[in-house]
Design a protein around this nucleic acid. Structure first.
Length: 840
RNA sequence: GCCGGGAUGGCGGAAUUGGUAGACGCAGCGGACUCAAAAUCCGCCGGUCGCAAGGCCUUGGGGGUUCGAGUCCCCCUCCCGGUACCA
């Protein structure tokens, strides 16, 4: 047989699988379905090792589940809108569409070279009008339902990208994509009411426990940031009260039990009441200066590690609704307009931040909660007391436990309209407007007379014009293209202007997983029957970096589309696997570090199967994987060994026998014990690799198990060849080896399977069903400990009684030495495993 | 600060329910083959003492539970990830 030439083997089988349509899949209610999905890539031009890892993991799962008899949906597509296309287009004088499509074409070839078992008939590209027309309809449906709205407010603005960002897309005060510092800019934008779903998004995380990594659930919980407390209104003190339409300042607090200790009020610099509070007061100039300073320093300093707490008195007072006392109103740099109401009732005795602030500005402090067995004194307090205790100086509530006092005080306030129970979320509504060209147009029209008018369904999709030249500064050309913007109002026929913002690209990725179920459906986004069969995704696989952004948006979208009657499930991804990064020399691969390993080069040098084996063998999926040039040599060596084993060492011996064939059919009787041992190892390999893949996604140990079987076969080649009657047993073992490795290294296994004389394809074989009784041996090795220390090993019959095992253990030579002159206190026998002799 | 996760040979990692620590691979060392090299095959490969049999030590550090702890409990150190004035 010929030398192992990966390229020949791989192109051969890729062609056969492709021509046979072997990975095409149709819904079949008579069979159990399995939907495995890897996060689709942005078509940047070349795949990188992170993709190879992600898609290799997914492909093993897909191929394995097929072998286990599932009807497996395993699709691939392209997250094809986004800024890199615009940048590249400007640089290379190419249209973003042309750049994107050519990238998709070359990346598809790369993926196909790796032998991934996708149903390519379902391929989607989000920049295709046939895709985004559906999300334009979603948008209009959301608009109709009030789930999407327009709002004017300060927005996160990235100067480099020339567009706004959602809160989730601001990382450490910088743009998630380009790391540019984000600034605030007043703009009117489209928002999606994700906050309407905050409670469900939080509660349903419990349904994902067990299926999703705990840390992703925690990150989402923290991001949603639910706080239970109260909204309490502090009336403004005369002469301000009621004079300017503002009755008071409403705060959100999680500690209504400390209300009697609120001795001043802190407002955010951006709080709308600040201007009217200071108007005409001596403090006006100082406050204005402070507000300007805080707002200008904004993000930069506010994101600094420990910004000094500062504030300034407004000259105005409000009234603590519990004590009736007037308290001063401050503007403070640590109060955020974006959380709660932008106003905080300050309780310095029981909040560390307020404590520091009060000490700095010499503000009064009132202890209202006393710990058990101690008496706090405001004057001598060294830090805020934040733990539970009993209320004091709190009117009728004095003497209550503080936890009970929370609801008691809320009820008391509620009775007189001064406050109410309130739940606050950290989660903000999702800003979906982007001032970019290469995205899906937002399908509305602004009419001078009629206002905001949805684009009528017959006019959908609003296609992104492809004949526009990009602006050299990277700004969107859409607002400057009359052919796009100038339209007649669909309602009155009058002069109107088309919306020129496009949708955040996370809009596309929030529903693509459902589109695969019926990717070519034209008039509607989904075929309900297909959706009902395939969704939700059984196993989703991707990087941890999407723990919040994409995964939260997708969860929200599913719920929103469900409430629009378009889908009928609650959560998109039943199980989530977050794979670690591929690193080199200790850090993430990047051009600037010059440590990038190109998958294509590796495939060219070693073949796709070797690349797959290495990337799956080097680390378990959740951990970061250090790329190793010698490590991939090892993977290559292993496949060559496998090849030589089947084509040289055991040549002439191998026949088309079913993997894990029955003992009777192999005719083991009368053969040397080696053959029974081979069969035991064959079945153990199938059992171990199956469990590792099925239950733990632990491909590294599955591969290790296969390597052990290969090593065993090599070690016994001579003896195996010497017994022609054992040929069937050897063939069964080799067949099992190939079947077990086939999800991981599909091409070489298919080729060797054929070389065994099989007429069927290996990809159509079931996973080898091991016979549990084949794993049982006549004798078992037992380790013998004396006082917990290993002193010897004995071999006993599998069904030996504990007494027999104990007797044998105590007779072991080295054990005898160690118990000599001692009294045996106790003997512990763990059947089949171990004996521990306790003696002193 | 808070919340997760982690620390095992020279390296990547294994040990699934508390039961032989170091599977498998990489690197290294020795040998066979070869004029030689590559490739391949065989052997060794945590530290330490010992001719050997075998002993002692060893899973970041310290304590504990247990016949027995990498695994469970408590304390500490360090590393990684997330998050951070959230009222």
């Amino acid at each position: 047989m010929s030398r192992y030439v990966p390229e020949d083997v791989e192109t051969k089988w890729q062609r056969i699988w492709e021509e046979g349509g072997h990975f095409h899949v149709e819904a079949d209610p008579s069979r159990p379905k399995y939907y495995v999905l890897e996060m689709f890539p942005y078509p940047s031009g070349r795949i990188h090792m992170g993709h190879v890892r992600n898609y290799s993991i997914g492909d093993v799962v897909a191929r394995f589940k097929r072998m286990e008899g599932h009807n497996v949906l395993h699709p691939m597509g392209w997250d094809a809108f986004g800024m890199p296309a615009e940048n590249a287009a400007i640089k290379n004088k190419l249209h973003p569409a042309a750049w994107t499509i050519s990238n998709i074409d070359s990346m598809r070839v790369q993926l196909q070279r790796l032998g991934y078992s996708y149903d390519w008939r379902r391929e989607i590209a989000t920049c295709h009008p046939g895709y985004y027309v559906h999300e334009q309809r979603f948008f209009l449906k959301f608009l109709e339902k009030g789930l999407v709205y327009r709002k004017h407010s300060p927005q996160n603005w990235c100067e480099t990208c020339g567009t706004v960002l959602a809160n989730e897309q601001v990382i450490d005060g910088c743009c998630w994509r380009c790391d540019q510092l984000v600034v605030q800019k007043d703009l009117e934008q489209w928002f999606l009411r994700i906050t309407d779903y905050a409670e469900e998004l939080l509660a349903d995380l419990d349904k994902l426990v067990g299926g999703w990594p705990e840390r992703v659930l925690t990150m989402q919980r923290n991001w949603i940031g639910k706080s239970v407390g109260a909204e309490i209104t502090f009336p403004l003190a005369a002469p301000l009260g009621g004079t300017d339409g503002a009755d008071g300042i409403t705060v959100f607090t999680t500690r209504p039990d400390t209300l009697f200790g609120a001795t001043f009020m802190s407002l955010a610099a951006e709080h709308p009441l600040v201007a009217s509070l200071i108007a005409g007061k001596p403090q006006e100039a100082a406050v204005t200066a402070f507000v300007d300073k805080v707002r200008n320093l904004d993000r930069i300093v506010r994101s600094a590690d420990d910004l000094e707490k500062e504030g300034v008195f407004t000259g105005a007072y409000c009234v603590n609704p519990a004590t009736g006392r007037e308290i001063p109103i401050y503007v403070a740099n640590f109060v955020l307009m974006g959380y709660g109401t932008g106003a905080v009732m300050a309780v310095p005795a029981h909040d560390q931040r307020d404590f520091e602030f009060a000490r700095k500005y010499d503000l009064p402090m009132q202890v209202v909660i006393q710990p058990e067995g101690a008496t706090l004194n405001a004057a001598s307090l060294e830090a805020a007391y934040v733990d539970p205790g009993v209320l004091v100086a709190s009117g009728e509530f004095s003497g209550m436990q503080n936890e009970a006092a929370k609801s008691a005080i809320i009820d008391w306030l509620d009775g007189s309209g001064r406050g109410k129970k309130s739940i606050n979320y950290r989660l903000r509504d999702w800003n979906i407007s982007r001032q970019r060209y290469w995205g899906a147009p937002i399908p509305v029209i602004y009419c001078e007379k009629c206002g905001i008018v949805p684009v009528p369904d017959v006019d959908l999709p609003v296609e992104l014009p492809r004949d526009l030249a990009l602006m050299p500064d990277g700004r969107s050309p859409l607002p400057h293209a009359p052919s796009f913007t100038d339209v007649a109002c669909p309602l009155c026929g009058g002069k109107a202007r088309r919306e020129t913002d496009t949708l955040d690209t996370f809009f596309e990725s929030s529903w693509y997983f459902a589109r695969y179920a019926s990717a070519r459906e034209q008039d509607r986004p989904f075929d309900p029957a297909e959706l009902a069969y395939w969704l939700p995704v059984d196993q989703y696989i991707g990087g941890i970096e999407h723990a919040i952004l994409h995964l939260l948006y997708s969860r929200f979208f599913v719920k929103a589309l469900r409430d629009c009657g378009l889908i009928a499930f609650d959560e998109p991804f039943a199980n989530l696997l977050t794979q670690g990064m591929v690193i080199k020399d200790g850090s993430k691969m990047s051009k600037s570090k010059g440590n990038v390993v190109d998958p294509d080069l590796m495939i060219g040098k070693y073949g796709a199967d070797t690349v797959r084996v290495f990337i799956l063998f080097a680390a378990p999926p959740e951990k970061d994987l250090e790329w190793s040039d010698t490590g991939i040599e090892g993977a290559s060596r292993f496949l060559s060994r496998l090849w030589r084993l089947a084509t040289e060492e055991l040549a002439g011996l191998l026949t088309p026998v079913a993997p894990c064939a029955t003992a009777e059919s192999l005719g083991l009787d009368g053969l040397p014990p080696l053959f029974a041992e081979l069969r035991r190892r064959e079945h153990a390999t199938a059992a171990k690799a199956g469990a590792d893949i099925r239950e733990r996604f632990q491909f590294n140990t599955a591969i290790a198990a296969a390597m052990e079987l290969v090593n065993f076969l090599y070690a016994n080649v001579e003896a195996l060849r010497a017994e022609p009657k054992g040929a069937k047993a050897v063939s069964s073992a080799v067949g099992t080896l190939l079947a077990v490795l086939s999800p991981i290294a599909p091409h070489i296994c298919e080729e060797l399977w054929q070389s065994l004389g099989h007429k069927t394809l290996l990809i159509e074989q079931p996973w080898p069903a091991h016979d549990p009784s084949a794993l049982v041996t006549d004798t078992v090795d037992i380790v013998v400990q004396v006082c917990g220390k290993l002193r010897g090993k004995i071999s006993v019959a599998r069904d030996a009684s504990n007494a027999d095992v104990e007797r044998a253990a105590l007779a072991e030579v080295n054990v005898v030495k160690h118990i000599e002159g001692k009294t045996i206190r106790k003997v512990i026998v763990v059947p089949g495993k171990l004996v521990n002799v306790v003696a002193n």
